[in-house]
Design a protein around this nucleic acid. Structure first.
Length: 487
RNA sequence: GGUUUCGUGGCCGAGUGGCUAGGCAGUGGUCUGCAAAACCACGUACAGCGGUUCGAAUCCGCUCGAAACCUCCA
């Protein structure tokens, strides 16, 4: 409970770290913009959701009851602002001659599967845009009532200039309305809009458009920013604690959400805005359209020319956790390889933890170790620092195993609980390739016993043969003070 | 062009005014039948130039370079 009061988060609204205080003491409302399900999620998409998984997990670790809402965008966003704009899911459905909902289903399943492999917890509510058309229409109506939107040819546009008269448009992304006007001057054209900055909150559907619904303004579909406003309001209230998403959604998506929410309800939707940074490949944002994206499946199977081998989901997760969520993270096979070794080292230490001998008195400050975990995470969810501190603990674990440091039973109990909690519950790591059954472990025990037998008769040829062959099979034998272990 | 951000040792990546980041790789050592693992020691990194300061990788200015957003994107 004490650690809870020390959490600091970086709020994009202020550009600074702020003390985190939830609206309702024990509860946190968390909304994260989810994926548009028109293709397989790539690794860059995954990073954002893994980052928020960490945040979600730590908030719960601190004792908060978190309602985590993450939407599925199953109405594609408009491709262009011109009249013939087509949404991505419609387009894909047309090309593949499928029902839009088949596309949505296929890639939603893929998304869930990938999240599961990366051990990202499912959100509390995962609403879809198409399931909330009525809520969106209601919200549009409310904005129209306030005079902050106008109808034009069966579409409804948000009146940015009018809104800006009473509320600063651009407060989240640091943009000034004059600059925005100057920047968009070239774009305009034959427009239904009063101003190029205005954005659609309801869009008139052309005949060919597949996904469409009736509305007071005719047949159409909701504008691209509206779904998040409608769904976050429905499930978390008019103002909730944390709204998150990728950096690339800051403008215009989140800026528009603030404007819509404020226009419709009179209050700003979220107190804290958290933005996760991009996963880059060769220094550039991983993006499907740029052709530099990696699919999680390719990573897990090693089936990509960028990779020298396959990497497990937990190694990938650990790799992501080694960078702070607000920094870009550059992907390379080399960096992943380094992460794999580090992850292995951490897991080895966790296994050792259960076999440590206890004595009467501890020779080092266990409590300080534990405090360092909380300090790291309380500083804007600084997982890389947490991991650095965990490696400090790894050193102590190894020293105890070597008989060079000591720990008492009470300290060990408490340490085990906290350490494991941070590794497995907060970082969300899992021990991989835990060949599941005890049978295998028993066989390994037997093999190592036989090797020990050979060693005791100085049959080095046999003992080395066993060790080398196991090595070839991917099993490493480690001789320690109290016998051999393997991993 | 505008907005936001970044440039850290061989690689990845923390740090935001004085005090060790950490991981991987490397070198030397201890241990070991040999090895692996583990432990110990080591590398004097902060794009460049100028300024503020007793003191700057950390603050300010300029220069160079990179990225994201300003069209859909996590």
């Amino acid at each position: 409970m004490e650690a809870k009061s020390q959490l600091q988060v970086h709020n994009s609204l202020s550009g600074q770290k702020e003390k985190f205080e939830s609206i309702h003491q024990e509860f946190v409302g968390l909304y994260v913009c989810g994926p548009t399900v028109y293709s397989n999620v790539h690794l860059g998409n995954c990073r954002t959701f893994v980052s928020f998984d960490l945040i979600y997990r730590y908030l719960m670790h601190l004792g908060y009851k978190v309602r985590y809402v993450r939407n599925i965008t199953d109405v594609g966003h408009l491709e262009s602002d011109e009249g013939e704009g087509e949404d991505k899911i419609s387009k894909k459905a047309r090309l593949e001659q499928l029902e839009p909902m088949e596309i949505v289903q296929q890639y939603t399943l893929d998304f869930h599967q990938v999240m599961d492999r990366l051990n990202a917890l499912p959100p509390s509510i995962e609403p879809t845009a198409t399931g909330h058309i009525i809520e969106q229409i209601e919200m549009i109506r409310s904005i129209l009532d306030k005079g902050l939107a106008y109808e034009s040819n069966g579409s409804v546009y948000f009146d940015v200039l009018k809104y800006n008269e009473t509320h600063p448009y651009g407060e989240l992304s640091g943009r000034k309305i004059e600059d925005l006007i100057a920047g968009t001057r070239e774009l305009d054209g034959q427009d239904e809009k009063r101003n190029p900055l205005d954005f659609a909150i309801w869009k008139n559907a052309s005949k060919e458009h597949i996904m469409k619904w009736p509305s007071p303004w005719g047949i159409g579909f909701p504008g691209w920013h509206l779904e998040c406003s409608a769904m976050s309001t429905k499930y978390l209230g008019e103002t909730f604690d944390i709204h998150g998403g990728g950096m690339d959604l800051k403008f215009p998506h989140h800026e528009c959400e603030i404007a819509q929410g404020t226009a419709a309800l009179g209050v700003s939707p979220a107190r804290y805005w958290l933005h996760t940074n991009m996963l880059t490949l060769n220094g550039k944002k991983m993006s499907k359209s740029l052709g530099n994206s990696l699919l999680p499946e390719e990573l897990f199977s090693g089936n990509n020319e960028l990779l020298d081998k396959a990497y497990g989901p937990m190694v990938v997760r650990f790799f992501m956790m080694q960078a702070h969520y607000r920094s870009t993270l550059d992907f390379s096979s080399e960096a992943l390889g380094a992460a794999e070794k580090g992850f292995q080292k951490l897991m080895d230490a966790v296994r050792k933890l259960d076999q440590l001998q206890v004595v009467k008195e501890s020779s080092f400050d266990v409590e300080a170790q534990i405090e360092s975990y909380y300090a790291a995470m309380n500083d804007d969810f600084n997982a890389p620092i947490l991991i650095a501190n965990l490696f400090e603990s790894v050193r102590y674990i190894n020293l105890i195993a070597d008989g060079k440091e000591k720990i008492n039973a009470a300290d060990l109990e408490r340490w085990k609980t906290e350490l494991k909690s941070f590794i497995f519950n907060v970082l969300g790591l899992q021990i991989e390739s835990e060949s599941g059954n005890d049978q295998f472990g028993q066989v390994m025990d037997l093999v190592l016993e036989m090797r020990q037998e050979a060693r005791s008769t100085k049959n080095w040829a046999l003992s080395d043969l066993i060790r080398d062959r196991l090595q070839e099979a991917g099993i490493q034998v480690k001789d320690g003070k109290d016998g051999a272990s393997w991993s």
